[in-house]
Structures are given as C-alpha cells and as structure tokens.
Design a protein around this nucleic acid. Structure first.
Length: 558
RNA sequence: GUGCCCGUAGCUCAACCGGAUAGAGCAUCAGCCUUCUAAGCUGGAGGUUACUGGUUCGAUUCCAGUCGGGCACGCCA
C-alpha cells in the first residue's frame, strides 16, 4: 500500500518547495488509520514551523486515489494518517489464495546464494539442550532466507581431530578396559557420560578383549565418532533439521597441489600484507594494528593473536579464517554463522583477517545466541558435556515433543537468556504458548471440514472475488493482518530474528479468535458463509506457511 | 578488573529506523458454552520501562555513568 502514497507525498512536498525521506509506520492504535508518516515532524526543524501546520500544508497539496485511500488526517504532534478504503484490503486478500503455499515469500535474496552454518558440534557427545537453541535458530534462519529467495546451503562444520577427540577415544578405551575386568582410575577430566560406556560395550561385544593390551586408539576413535555423529544426526532429524553439507576442518590441513595447506596460504597471504610476526616460537596475527586492544590499569594495550602455537599446532582461529575464505571461494553472497555467546570474542579476529585480505566481510553475519538455562520445578539446572550431567536434546524432545522444543528455542530474542521451563513446555494445556497458535489452525480446519461435509463446499479460484463482499469489522481486521505476513517474514529474515515471526503469528491468532467469536460461518446464508470460508482459507494458508518456516506441525485436530 | 549481551506488569516476554494512551500470554478477579473445538472470547486490576543525567519537538529505543545478572577475557576448542 505504501507504493500508492510515496509518489503523491513527494509531489506534495515538492510543491511546497521541500523534500525529505518518507517513512511509514503502522500506527499503534487503529483510530490513527492504517499507515502514518512522520514526515512533517522531520521537516519541522529545517522549516522552523509547527509540525502540525506543515502536515496540514502537505495534506492540502496531496492528490490521492479516493478508491484506495478513503481519508487522510493530521493528529498528535504532526502525524499524517492514511485510512484505506475497506475494499482495498479485501481485493489484496485474494492474493493470499492465489499464491497459496508461496504467499509470504519475498525477493530480498532473489538470485543470491546464502550459507548458514549451524550446530557445528564436534562429535564428542550427544547434543545438549544448550546446543539445541543454536540448531533451531540456525535452521529457522535458513528457512527465512529461503523464503526470501536465497539459494540456501545449510552447513555443519566439525573437527574430528585434535586433543578433544583423543580424550574421547581414550575415554572409550578406559571404559572398555573396565569391561575387560581391569581396574582403571577414570580421570576426572575425561568424558563422564553414560554414552561412553555404551560405545565401549558395543566395541567389547564385537571385539571381545582383543584390544586389551593395545595402545592403539584408532578403533576407539572411529567407532566413537561414527556412533556419536549418527546420534547427533538422528537427534537433529527429530527436529526436522538436515544439513546439506558437512565441512570437515581437517581438509584445511591437507596439502594441496601447491605443496601448501589452506592454513599455510592464510599465513603467507597475511604475511604479504605485513600482519604476521613470529616471536616466542609462535606465529602471531598482528591484530594490534587493526584495533584489537585490551585495557589494563586504564592503559590501552594492543593485542595480537596467536595463529600457530609454539608447538607447531595451529590455534583454532587459523582454520576458522581459512574456512571463511573457503566460503568466499564458494561465492556466497551472504554467510550466516550461528553460535553461542561463548564464541563472542572469536569472530572479530576472523572478520579482521578477511578484511585485510580484501574480502567483503560485511557479507558475513553472525547470529549469537545467549545461553539456555533449564528450570525444573523452579530449580535451575546447569549443564556441561564434559561432566556428563547435561540434559540431552534428545531427552528434551522425548519430554516435550519436537514442536514445543522448536517453538521454545526461537520464541525469544536470541540475544536474551532463555529460560526453558521444562514443566511448562511439557504441558498440553493453554499456558503452553505453542498451543495457542496451533489451536487457531485446528479450529479453522474443523470449520472447513464441516463446510465440506455438510455444505458441500469446494474452494474455487473464480469465487475468490467473494472476499470483497466482507464488511464486518472483525472480517476486515483479519484480512488486514493476513496481508502483513510478507512484511513480517522480511523483517524476521533481515534481522535474523525468527521470534518476530512468532510475535506476528500470535497477533494473527488473536485476531482470528475474535473473528471466530463474532462471526459464525456454518449455518449462515451462502452470501455470508462463502466469503468467510475464503477468508479462513486465507488465514489457514498464513498459519501453514508460517508454521513451515518455524518448522512446527499444523494439526488438523487437537 | 576489562569487553560484549541483557534488565519492561507477580512470572515469561513484545514494542517495526527515535513516535501518539508501553502491549500480549500465564497467574488473579468478574462475565460468556441448547449453535463451526471454552486449548477460546469480553471486561477489571496490575508499570517511576533497574537507577541518575544528557541529546531531541518527542527516548523502552540513542549517549554517559551507577547498580544487578550472564558470557568471554589461554600458545583450550
């Protein structure tokens, strides 16, 4: 609708001898119309005039199509409010039915390629509840970007080498030796979870005690990795999450045709630019030259970053940089990384390196999610994989179901701490927020079932026109909010904040329930019933399309 | 100690780029089912937007400081 207003407003401003960027917003209160602009207030300072007077001047010069904009008003400090003709929304509502499953899709990412990297847990143990938030967040962001026309790659970055994996393998070996009957003192800093014992048992069952006196860890490592990875994928699958690509960090260490690895290449390129220094036996990235600093005793000190430790091993930042260069080589227009707040200090180094090497680092977006605390009976449960007292994501899904799991993880802004109330999520009662939404969909489905079975209703595109005969306030309100769906998706996608979509859908559910109470459908004369049936078909479409992005089911009955 | 994030109704959270009387759900109080699902709707009560200043015609939003919580500050990942 904004398109109808922008040019007339520009013309009006021009005839007053001025110009400004024209911004619209949806007024909080419907008595202020459907859209408003604050352009008069913006101009107040330059023109040194009362904003209300400016607004009145603008309105007097406005030329608008009366069949679209019914009324224009000036209110408050100088807002210009536009009231749309009822028919305008209803005509537009036909689009929802015509577009069907594609309604709501946008073109922000048309012709562009995006990669979303999420989960990325190393295969050292089952996914925890804490990991779940990033997993669902990343998956939903990927869905939102896909809905904006991006060709999206969902990628999982992992490392199955290094110290952690050695500890994992040795943990399994220790448990295996226990099964062989050996007395072992199990180290405290080894993996404590029962899954280690399960893996050891599987090995013991197939291999017997044949590995008892071997120091070789390979079988333990490979078995553990394979089994744990399999369980991670299964857990993700329960939430409807499936990655397109798995990127193994090890490939960055491999020596290519040039005789160097990707990691070597990063260092030599940074060295050419003058950002590498070797001292104390280590290789440093001179981030101090790029603004990285810390403050000690109120004195700022530049800070460099180690890329290769004095042991000769790369620190984890080096492969991180190489990995991002790899993403650029794959020519993505947008690269989203989803990770937890504990990595908050890591990505600035990566971005600094990318910038220095001539990449457009603004294409990299980082979605950081704050931690999850779970409460059970009001008591906070802290989690750690290493200690083995973690609530696994699997157990959570068993407990509350996939829909509630997904919903709870994304219903809050990612940057706020999430309190996952296990008791609440488990409830099959109205205090559980996911039910409020799904119930609206189930109600619509129930009405449509009846319409088909008792009134022989068959939806037909040449009857969509009937929507324009709706007149009741609750009908119009519903049509209007359904039309905001594309904007809601776009906003959620651009900000990488799926919770905005939930907030929007909650609003739709609220307006629908009001409509439901005010407007009966089955049993009304055809002239009333049919337009309403098409209206709720449109509402159902919005719920279904929205639920698909959120990754939750759309139950026909509850 | 330093950096980043957060602080909004009793609880969990919204508030689109700085806009109009700060909104929902839960809990609570009062109503609404012979009629499409009462997992719903209507109404009431509930707020110094942590605090103090600043910028602005206008601040929950931006800036500075204070207090409180989380995370990170390693040649760990």
């Amino acid at each position: 609708m904004k398109e109808f207003l922008v040019q007339p407003l520009r013309d009006a401003l021009q005839s007053l001898g001025t110009a400004a960027e024209i911004q619209f917003e949806k007024p909080a209160d419907e008595k202020f119309g459907d859209l408003s602009t604050n352009v008069a207030m913006q101009l107040a300072r330059d023109l040194k005039k009362n904003p209300r007077q400016i607004a009145a001047d603008i309105v007097s010069k406005l030329v608008l199509d009366k069949s679209v904009v019914e009324k224009v008003g000036v209110a408050g400090a100088g807002f210009i409010n536009f009231y749309f003709a009822k028919g305008a929304s209803l005509v537009a509502a036909k689009e929802i039915l015509l577009k069907g499953a594609t309604y709501g899709e946008g073109t922000v990412g048309a012709g562009q390629r995006a990669i979303v990297e999420y989960v990325s847990a190393n295969p050292t143990g089952p996914l925890t509840v804490g990991r779940g938030r990033g997993a669902v967040l990343g998956d939903t962001i990927a869905n939102l970007l896909a809905a904006q026309g991006y060709a999206v790659t969902r990628e999982y970055y992992f490392n199955n080498a290094g110290r952690q994996m050695r500890i994992l393998a040795d943990s399994v070996r220790m448990r295996y030796l226990e099964l062989c009957g050996d007395e072992v003192s199990y180290p405290e800093d080894y993996y404590q979870g029962d899954y280690i014992k399960d893996i050891a048992r599987n090995i013991f069952e197939t291999q017997g005690a044949s590995l008892r006196y071997s120091q070789e860890l390979t079988l333990f490592k490979e078995t553990a990795e394979a089994e744990i990875f399999e369980s991670i994928k299964q857990t993700l699958a329960r939430l409807g999450i499936a990655h397109d690509a798995f990127f193994n960090e090890n490939t960055l260490y491999e020596i290519g045709e040039s005789g160097t690895s990707r990691l070597d290449d990063v260092i030599s390129r940074l060295r050419e630019k003058g950002y590498i220094e070797e001292r104390e036996g280590a290789v440093w990235f001179k981030t101090s030259l790029l603004g990285k600093k810390k403050v000690e005793d109120k004195i700022e000190i530049g800070v460099d970053t180690v890329l290769v430790k004095s042991t000769g091993e790369p620190s984890y930042r080096l492969p991180d940089i190489a990995y991002h260069i790899n993403k650029f080589a794959r020519d993505f227009d947008l690269m989203v990384n989803v990770f937890g707040a504990d990595h908050i200090d890591e990505y600035p180094d990566v971005l600094r390196a990318l910038k220095v090497l001539g990449y457009d680092e603004t294409k990299v977006k980082v979605a950081i999610n704050q931690f999850v605390t779970t409460t059970v009976n009001g008591e906070v449960v802290k989690m750690s994989t290493r200690k083995g007292n973690a609530d696994t994501l699997d157990a959570l899904i068993d407990d509350v179901g996939a829909d509630a799991t997904r919903f709870f993880f994304i219903m809050r802004n990612k940057e706020t701490h999430l309190n996952f109330d296990l008791e609440l999520a488990k409830k099959q009662t109205p205090d559980n927020p996911v039910f409020y939404l799904q119930y609206a969909h189930a109600r619509i489905s129930g009405i449509l079932r009846l319409a088909v079975s008792e009134k022989n209703f068959v939806a037909s595109a040449n009857e969509y026109e009937l929507l324009t005969s709706l007149t009741v306030k609750e009908e119009i309100d519903l049509a209007k909010i359904l039309l905001e769906f594309p904007a809601a998706i776009e906003r959620a996608a651009l900000t990488l904040e799926p919770n905005r979509l939930i907030t929007y859908l909650n609003g739709v559910a609220e307006v629908f329930h009001k409509f439901y109470h005010e407007c009966r459908i089955i049993g009304e004369p055809d002239a009333v019933m049919k337009p309403r049936l098409y209206l709720i078909l449109a509402a159902r479409q919005v719920f279904q399309n929205g639920f698909k992005i959120l990754g939750i089911s759309a139950p026909e009955k509850m």
